[in-house]
Simulated assay, not measured.
Amino acid sequence: MNNMHYSLNEISPIWMILIAILLFVQGTWIFQDARKRGRFPWLWGLWGITGFPTPLIVYWFVVIRSGRRRS
């Protein structure tokens, strides 16, 4: 049996709270930045709360980096 899988009962509630806060902060920051840039804020914000750090990295390449090239 693979020992790399954990059930929710084995994960400390503190870690669950920290992960939830991290995802909420990331999604909020991406949403606010996308709204400032006018680049589909709801799409980016919702995707930002689904995982870490993939949405942030993709957002950086697609929105922030492409915006710098135009300037």
Rank of each mutant, 00 (worst) to 15 (best):
E10Y: 12
I11A: 11
I11V: 15
P13L: 14
P13Y: 13
I14D: 07
W15V: 06
W15Y: 12
M16C: 12
I17E: 13
L18I: 14
L18P: 00
L18V: 11
I19F: 13
I21Q: 05
I21K: 09
L22K: 07
L23F: 10
F24R: 06
F24M: 12
V25T: 13
V25G: 05
V25K: 08
Q26M: 04
Q26I: 01
Q26S: 11
T28I: 07
T28N: 10
T28Q: 09
T28P: 02
W29P: 02
W29K: 15
F31G: 00
Q32C: 11
Q32H: 11
A34H: 01
R35F: 01
R35W: 02
R35K: 13
R35H: 04
K36P: 01
K36Y: 09
K36A: 09
K36S: 10
R37F: 08
G38E: 07
G38W: 05
R39K: 15
F40W: 09
F40H: 10
F40P: 00
P41H: 00
W42L: 15
L43M: 12
L43T: 10
L43R: 08
G45Q: 03
G45T: 05
G45I: 01
G48L: 02
T50A: 15
T50C: 15
F52K: 00
P53H: 04
P53I: 03
P53C: 06
P53K: 05
T54Q: 07
T54V: 09
P55E: 08
P55R: 03
L56D: 02
L56G: 06
I57Q: 01
I57V: 14
V58R: 02
Y59H: 04
Y59S: 02
V62D: 12
V63G: 00
V63E: 01
V63I: 14
V63L: 03
I64C: 04
S66E: 07
S66W: 03
S66M: 05
G67W: 09
R69L: 07
R70Y: 11
